[in-house]
Amino acid sequence: MSRVPSPPPPAEMSSGPVAESWCYTQIKVVKFSYMWTINNFSFCREEMGEVIKSSTFSSGANDKLKWCLRVNPKGLDEESKDYLSLYLLLVSCPKSEVRAKFKFSILNAKGEETKAMESQRAYRFVQGKDWGFKKFIRRDFLLDEANGLLPDDKLTLFCEVSVVQDSVNISGQNTMNMVKVPECRLADELGGLWENSRFTDCCLCVAGQEFQAHKAILAARSPVFSAMFEHEMEESKKNRVEINDVEPEVFKEMMCFIYTGKAPNLDKMADDLLAAADKYALERLKVMCEDALCSNLSVENAAEILILADLHSADQLKTQAVDFINYHASDVLETSGWKSMVVSHPHLVAEAYRSLASAQCPFLGPPRKRLKQS
Rank of each mutant, 00 (worst) to 15 (best):
L274F: 09
A263S: 03
D310M: 12
M255I: 03
S54C: 02
M176C: 03
W338K: 00
G337W: 06
P248C: 05
S355G: 04
E232Y: 13
Y24C: 02
K339E: 02
T319H: 05
L69C: 11
A270D: 06
F102R: 00
E47G: 06
F41Y: 06
W36I: 04
F211W: 15
L88T: 07
E112P: 14
K110D: 15
G208K: 15
D63P: 15
S330R: 01
V98F: 14
Y259T: 01
F199Y: 14
E234L: 12
A219L: 15
V181A: 06
V241I: 04
V250M: 02
L86D: 00
S58T: 06
K28D: 05
T56S: 04
V179Y: 08
T25W: 12
W131R: 01
S85Q: 10
C44N: 03
V224I: 15
T200W: 15
D166M: 07
K154R: 08
G191L: 09
C23S: 13
F324H: 12
M1H: 00
K103H: 14
S6V: 13
P346T: 08
E235F: 08
K369W: 03
G192S: 11
M341R: 00
F136N: 03
Q209K: 12
A100Y: 06
L65M: 09
G60T: 10
A109Q: 06
N296D: 03
S226N: 11
C68P: 00
S171F: 03
R121P: 01
C23F: 03
R198T: 14
Q120W: 09
D315C: 10
D245K: 15
E79W: 15
I170G: 06
N326I: 10
F43R: 13
G132M: 00
E351Y: 02
N301L: 08
V299L: 05
V349P: 06
F257S: 09
S226W: 14
V206G: 15
L65I: 02
N39S: 03
E300G: 04
D188I: 06
S6I: 09
S6N: 04
L371I: 08
A213F: 13
D140P: 05
R124I: 14
F211R: 14
K103D: 08
L297N: 00
L142N: 12
P362C: 15
Y34E: 08
Y327P: 02
P8F: 07
Y123V: 11
E235Q: 06
Q373K: 12
E47D: 06
D153E: 12
P73D: 14
S226R: 14
K74T: 15
D278Y: 09
V322M: 06
H347S: 05
S92P: 01
I38E: 00
L308N: 14
E253D: 01
V98P: 15
I217M: 14
N296G: 12
R354L: 05
Y327W: 06
K53Q: 09
S167H: 05
Q373M: 15
N72D: 08
L69I: 07
A314R: 10
N301G: 07
K135T: 11
G75R: 13
N108L: 15
N62A: 09
P367K: 15
Y24M: 14
A11L: 07
I52E: 05
I52A: 03
L65K: 11
S92C: 12
L282P: 09
S105H: 11
C23Y: 04
K64T: 03
E300M: 05
F136C: 03
D144F: 13
A207Y: 11
N265P: 05
P151Q: 05
E79G: 11
L356G: 08
P346E: 11
R185T: 05
C203W: 02
K129A: 04
D82Y: 05
D315K: 06
N72F: 07
A100W: 00
S58K: 13
I305L: 10
C256F: 10
S54N: 01
C294P: 02
A352H: 10
S162V: 05
L84D: 14
F125M: 00
A303Y: 07
L308W: 04
S42F: 04
T319A: 11
S340R: 07
S21D: 05
K286C: 06
D331R: 03
S167C: 07
T25P: 00
P8G: 11
V18W: 09
V161F: 08
S374D: 15
K74H: 14
P362D: 14
P151F: 07
A187D: 06
Q173R: 02
A187P: 08
P367R: 14
Q212Y: 08
I258H: 00
N40Y: 01
C289Y: 01
A207C: 11
V161I: 10
S236T: 11
G192R: 02
N39D: 04
L297E: 00
A213D: 00
N147A: 09
L364E: 12
K64Q: 10
N244Q: 06
C289T: 04
E97A: 15
E351D: 04
K372V: 06
K103G: 13
R240F: 06
Q320P: 10
V126G: 12
L193T: 09
K129D: 11
L65V: 15
H312R: 04
R198F: 15
E112V: 07
A359L: 06
P73A: 06
E160F: 09
G16E: 11
E334G: 09
F257R: 00
N40W: 09
N62I: 13
R70K: 10
K180W: 06
H214E: 00
D267Y: 09
R185Q: 06
G60W: 04
S298F: 04
Q316R: 06
K252Y: 06
F324T: 10
Y87D: 00
L76A: 11
D267V: 03
Q209F: 15
S42M: 05
L204H: 04
S33N: 11
S33G: 10
Y123A: 13
K369I: 01
W67T: 01
N108C: 13
S2V: 08
F125R: 02
A207D: 14
H231A: 14
S167L: 06
F43N: 10
N301S: 03
F199E: 15
A359I: 00
A357N: 06
G208Q: 12
R198I: 15
V206Q: 12
C159K: 00
K115E: 10
G128R: 10
L142K: 14
S58N: 15
K215G: 07
F32W: 12
L157I: 10
K101D: 15
Y280V: 01
S358M: 09
R368Q: 12
N147D: 05
V342Q: 10
V4M: 10
V287R: 04
A122R: 05
K154E: 12
P362V: 15
F211T: 05
P182Q: 04
N196G: 07
L142W: 12
P73S: 06
S33I: 14
K215Q: 09
L69M: 07
E79T: 11
P8T: 05
I170Q: 02
N265S: 02
S330E: 10
G191D: 12
V51G: 05
V179F: 07
S15L: 09
Q212V: 11
R70S: 14
L193F: 10
E113H: 11
V164Q: 07
L86R: 00
K129I: 09
V98E: 14
R354A: 09
E183R: 06
N326C: 11
A109E: 04
A146F: 08
P9C: 12
A227N: 08
S42G: 03
K81L: 09
L306R: 01
A309W: 00
Q360R: 13
F199V: 15
A11N: 13
S92D: 14
I106H: 14
N147Y: 15
L274K: 00
G128D: 09
L190G: 10
T260V: 06
E235P: 02
P5T: 08
K339V: 02
K215A: 13
P9K: 13
T37M: 06
K215M: 11
L311H: 03
H347N: 04
R70G: 11
C205K: 11
A227E: 05
L143P: 13
E12V: 05
G191H: 10
R354C: 06
P346S: 03
F43Y: 07
